[in-house]
């Protein structure tokens, strides 16, 4: 876990965390961009294989950084929230005393339990993110090797140089084919599901910790908003039921009125408002 949390607890870091959690596609975009930048570099240097390899490695590194940044940002929050726990402050000087060894004692037991839950979900998220990154890494390698093989196979047959655009189209074609294969495998969709599940767990644990903070600040909590939503939903349903009942009553009354009119032999009665009831 990040030790120097004080250096990281800026609001933009926390905002960054929320963005990172929402940006499920950031990593994939890097993969997509890699092909173009590599080929554009090739157009400049004429060193296709080196350029591709370098750019894909850079993209992979970037990918790892993205995941690490998300995790680091969650750690910032965790550390921030942990500052409230006196036991943490007392035990802090003893570096060998790991956080997970603290018993839940003192007036902030509930908060400590929440933080521990957050820590567990963070571990789960890290594991899932790592698994997904590994899958993406394999996807990279598979795409790259397939592309290189096809380039090698085609090279002796080609009399003229293909344009960067043609090479890139070819890259996209190979990447699309490989990606499709991964999507239809067992492990890739499972890695996405696991990441989504871990992300949901992490988000719920974060919400619990943030709710404590919001309640302390006198701000509406997630729990309060949900209560309002449920209450409104109940009111809406009741209103719909009442409206339908009222409509049925009106229909029945209209039928009754029509039947009464049919039985009377005289001209149809008209109702008029009494004079004294005149309103402006």
């Amino acid at each position: 876990m990040q030790k120097d949390s004080a250096n990281h607890s800026r609001p933009e870091e926390i905002q960054g965390l929320l963005c990172d959690l929402l940006k499920g596609q950031g990593a994939l975009a890097i993969l997509l961009a890699a092909g173009w930048s590599a080929l554009a570099a090739f157009a400049r240097d004429g060193e296709a294989a080196t350029a591709l390899g370098e750019h894909l490695n850079q993209a992979l590194e970037q990918l790892h950084e993205e995941v690490a940044r998300s995790v680091e940002s969650v750690n910032v929050l965790l550390d921030l929230a942990r500052q409230l726990l006196s036991i943490d402050r007392l035990a802090h000087p003893f570096a060998h005393f790991a956080a997970h060894c603290y018993p839940c004692i003192g007036p902030l037991q509930k908060e400590q339990t929440n933080l521990e839950a957050l820590q567990r979900t963070l571990d789960g998220y890290q594991t899932a993110a790592l698994r997904y990154t590994q899958e993406l890494g394999e996807l990279y390698q598979a795409t790259l090797s397939e592309y290189q093989q096809e380039l090698t196979r085609r090279a002796p047959l080609e009399r003229t140089t293909r344009s960067t655009r043609e090479l890139y189209d070819h890259w996209l074609e190979v990447a699309e084919r490989t990606y499709e294969r991964f999507l239809h495998s067992e492990t890739y969709p499972q890695a996405i599901s696991a990441l989504l599940n871990a992300w949901a767990d992490l988000r719920l644990a974060l919400q619990t910790v943030l709710d404590e903070l919001f309640a302390y600040m006198g701000l509406p909590t997630r729990h309060a908003v949900e209560d309002t939503q449920r209450h409104l939903d109940r009111l809406r349903r009741q209103q719909r039921i009442d409206t339908i009942r009222l409509q049925h009553e009106i229909t029945a009354l209209r039928k009754e009125l029509a039947a009464l009119r049919a039985t009377t032999t005289g001209p149809p009665q008209t109702t008029s408002r009494p004079d004294r009831d005149k309103r402006s």
């Binding site: 929402l22 239809h184 599940n197 988000r203 719920l204």
Partner: peptide, 26 residues
């Protein structure tokens, strides 16, 4: 059905509990 392959292992109740409404961006 690729969508099925992706969502079949997702704990959808928990995900929606975390999200509330499911954002269009997602």
């Amino acid at each position: 059905d690729t969508l099925y392959r992706i969502v079949r292992h997702v704990n959808i109740e928990r995900l929606t509990q975390a999200l509330g409404n499911v954002p269009a961006t997602g």
